[in-house]
Design a protein around this nucleic acid. Structure first.
Length: 801
RNA sequence: GCCCGAGUGGCGGAAUUGGUAUACGCGCACGACUUAAAAUCGUGUCUCGUAAGGGAUGUGGGUUCGAUUCCCACCUCGGGCACCA
């Protein structure tokens, strides 16, 4: 037998696995199912680095163990392909996105293939495939039907560089999340999804999910629920206008006695009306107010909301409000620190209690009631709940996305119904994205599709329609793709009812934490909607979520082309092999934590595999003898301990302990300690001259999920005909794990002074006496009074003097 | 500002219903093998001390027979939210 030749072994088994469809997932199985899913990759053009496959390796390890444990495992892979980054890449490289996306996927798959994953590629999905996005469009139609999709002309975030509107979730610190350009507020016709209808459920159902607390916390912050009260303030006009009411929102209605003025958002509809031409005279300083409103309109969010900014505002002269608690007349101001789209767009200012109100009062010399009477929480207002979450701006003025399946009536004669929105009929789905030569964004409310006349114009009989030119955002397909893996080729339904019932829900979902407030909120929203209309059985899509910690470069920075610090998995596999790469990535540190890549440390897992190989060689050489003597290797300066007695079941016991540890650690995704225990086992085995092939094979089985190729080769070499990955996961025997002799630590006043060996069933009194008799102990205890002896079962004795 | 999470050898890290701190791996040192080197194998590797013994898990307190683990205050780093009333 030869040296450990990873190249030969890995290629050989990858081919055999594929040819024999070892990892095919069955639909109708009597077995219990296990659905383990990776967040599918967005393939925008750059090749991958060693950080990308880390999560895939983890799910691969879990899925392999689950399969060996007898589960019917669904572990699929697919591609998120629509959206801005892919289109920008296409524009940059002057390649049609249809072609560039296909090319990038092919390259990505090639890079994945050599890592040895157990995907069932027959279930691959691609969000830009018409057979797939037919159902994305179908969901949109259902949302529309249920009143959860609507058109709006409200000012929205507009990225001038990408020339499209963005959802709230796509804006980070007032900048476009993709390109960093400062976003503008522009009123543009757009499609919006009413995610806010689900705000309370999205929040409440977090409690029942096995997700990292940090992600739940992010979602809670993002949804931003606050309980408060709406209180009406009466408005009166000095020049004799008819009084009106303005509702304000506050989380502190008890502070109402301290409210010394009212502040409205400059965009408040009441203000808009008051400075309207037809309503001149309602307020005295219309010109001043109008000027301020205009100034505010021209500011972007960064200018408006930066914290160090000095507060600005204008009083509405000739207008007063009545504080319903004190019955006093108080002034009314407008200021841009009050936002229109939160609460009611109006607040009562309590400068004594609120830092912002205080700052504003001090600047404009407004009264502050330092000591005022506190009111009961519900004395003045009706209780209301507000959310920070905004509706999801769902249309993009870009080419590369799912067309929104909408028609509008076009009628040159101006007959009734013109401009009316007509949903495309279900039977006419998918509305296919036409192939075009030019797909540069137009910079208007229309996408480039508006100029594709043979696509945008639809004639049906006498009637002429125009298609909706906007497309869906990148996040549409990923909001439901996990359902399609259950039934990827179904033409009749998004997913077959029976199959959905069998597979739902995703048992384990693994991906980056950066998706906390976008993909993971959108997907939960769509899933809940699909639940409401009876498409899915469960109200949540992902039972358990784990996030992958980044792999950063050894210089401590992110791996990036820019820094020239990218480690390519292909190179690592070439040098060390896929099994070593897999093992190292799982061993480097806790799975969910960011760890730096080390070109030095990867040698450790490689050395480990080489030792596994060497032992395998020995086991094979002696295979003729069924059971090999466990004679300790004679080594100078070291007498074999009793545990290494040839007849002792030491290795048996260690094996069972290792099986237990590895099984539990994989389940808990503590791969680093699972591997550590495998290494400990190998270290012990090496102290023996030889090893029974039975024990060794069990060891191979629990190593197999981490290092599928080398274990398959050794397994096969030892005469096994069936794939190791289809063998049964070893079970540990809890009787065999029990220690006959237990080491007890003897402490004196909390300091370790000795250790004694006791039988497993020895009485407490016996153990105490034994410890007191110990020489090292009696040295300390003589002439001293023993106050107390504490015994912790199977662990220690603490003698308190 | 508010809300989460984390701080342990030269490095990645291990140890939780409070019970031997530093498992496993890397690195380093010494030794074996070699003409030599690499690879491999062996031994050692928190720190002060000749030793007995002492000290150390970001810092300072507390609870306890006993604290990396629990409590309080603070410092640093990472993440989320943020003129959200």
């Amino acid at each position: 037998m030869k040296e450990y030749d990873h190249k030969k072994i890995e290629k050989k088994w990858q081919t055999i696995w594929q040819e024999n469809k070892v990892y095919k997932t069955l639909d109708n199985s009597k077995k219990k199912k296990f659905y383990v899913l990776d967040m599918f990759p967005y393939v925008s053009g750059e090749g991958i680095h060693v950080g990308h496959p880390k999560g895939y390796i983890a799910t691969d390890v879990v899925s392999r163990m689950k399969r060996m444990q007898g589960f019917n495992v669904l572990h699929p892979m697919g591609f998120d392909a629509f959206g801005l980054p892919a289109e920008n890449y296409a524009i940059k490289t002057k390649t049609n996105p249809v072609i560039s996306v296909a090319k990038n996927i092919a390259r990505f798959k090639k890079q994945l293939a050599i890592i040895g994953f157990d995907y069932d590629w027959e279930r691959e999905v691609n969000t830009s495939d018409p057979k797939f996005y037919k159902w994305t469009q179908w969901i949109f139609l259902k949302l529309l039907e249920k009143g959860l999709a609507y058109e709006s002309n409200e000012p929205v975030n507009w990225c001038p560089k990408d020339r499209t509107v963005l959802a709230n979730e796509d804006v980070e610190d007032g900048k476009c999340e993709r390109c960093g350009t400062i976003v503008e507020k522009k009123p543009i016709r757009q499609w919006v999804l009413k995610i806010t209808d689900y705000a309370d459920r999205l929040l409440a159902d977090l409690d029942e999910l096995d997700w990292p607390e940090s992600i739940k916390e992010s979602q809670k912050n993002w949804i931003g629920r606050s309980e408060g009260a709406e209180i009406n303030f009466q408005i009166i006009f000095k020049n004799g206008g008819k009084p009106g009411l303005i509702p304000i929102f506050t989380t502190r209605p008890d502070t109402i006695f301290g409210a010394t003025y009212l502040v409205l958002s400059p965009e408040h509809p009441w203000v808009t009306l008051a400075i309207d031409d037809n309503h001149k005279g309602v307020i005295d300083n219309v010109l001043e107010v109008g000027k301020y409103v205009k100034e505010v309109k021209n500011k972007n969010d960064i200018e408006r909301t930066s914290l160090d900014k000095v507060k600005t505002g204008v009083e509405l002269k000739g207008v007063k409000a009545i504080n319903p608690a004190t019955r006093e007349e108080i002034p009314v101001w407008i200021a841009d620190y009050v936002l229109l789209n939160y609460g009611t767009g109006a607040v009562m200012a309590v400068p004594a209690d609120d830092a912002r109100d205080r700052e504003f009062s001090e600047k404009f010399k407004l009264p502050i009631f330092e000591n005022y009477q506190k009111a009961g929480f519900e004395d003045f207002g009706k209780k209301v709940i507000k959310f920070k979450l905004r509706d999801w701006v769902f249309s993009r003025q870009r080419y590369w996305g799912e067309p929104i399946p909408i028609l509008r009536v076009v009628d040159p004669e101006g007959i009734e119904g013109m401009g009316k929105v007509i949903p495309v009929k279900e039977k006419d789905l998918p509305v296919k994205l036409p192939k075009v030569k030019s797909y540069e964004p137009t910079g208007t409310a229309e996408s480039p599709l508006a100029n594709v006349s043979n696509w945008i114009n639809v004639k049906k009989g006498q009637k002429i329609f125009k298609r909706e030119s906007n497309t869906m955002p990148q996040w549409a397909g990923s909001s439901w793709y996990y359902l399609r893996y259950m039934d990827p080729k179904n033409n009749k339904a998004l997913v077959d009812k029976k199959k959905e019932k069998y597979w739902n829900m995703v048992d384990l979902y693994v991906g980056g934490a950066e998706h906390a407030t976008r993909h993971l909120i959108y997907a939960r929203f769509w899933h809940k909607f699909l639940y409401d209309i009876g498409v899915v059985e469960n109200k949540e899509p992902f039972k358990r979520l784990q996030h992958v910690g980044l792999i950063i470069a050894s210089d401590g920075r992110k791996m990036s082309k820019r820094f020239g610090n990218i480690i390519n998995p292909d190179t690592v596999i070439h040098t060390f092999g896929a099994d070593t790469l897999r093992l190292y990535e799982m061993f480097m540190g806790p799975f969910d934590q960011a760890v730096a890549w080390s070109e030095e440390a990867i040698i450790g897992p490689r050395r480990f595999l080489e030792r596994v190989w060497k032992i395998g060689k020995k086991v094979k050489e002696r295979e003729t003898k069924d059971f090999l003597s466990l004679r300790p290797r004679s080594r100078k300066g070291r007498e074999p301990t009793t545990l290494e007695n040839p007849l002792s079941p030491f290795l048996q016991k260690l094996l069972h302990k290792t099986i237990k540890k590895v099984t539990e650690d994989i389940e808990a995704m503590k791969f680093n300690t699972a591997i550590s225990s495998l290494m400990i086992f190998m270290n012990e085995v090496e102290k023996f001259d030889s090893l029974s092939s039975d024990v060794y094979k069990k060891f191979l089985q629990i190593l197999a999920p981490f290092a599928p190729h080398i274990t398959e080769e050794l397994w096969n070499m030892l005469g096994e005909k069936k794939s190791i990955h289809l063998s049964s996961w070893p079970k540990y025997d809890s009787e065999k794990i029990k220690d006959k002799e237990i080491k007890i630590i003897v402490q004196i006043n909390g300091k370790v002074r000795a250790e004694i060996l006791v039988e497993g069933d020895e009485t407490e009194e016996n153990i105490k006496q034994k410890s007191l008799k110990n020489e090292a102990v009696s040295k300390y205890t003589e002439d001293k009074e023993i106050k107390k002896i504490i015994y912790v079962k199977n662990r220690l004795i603490n003698i308190v003097l």
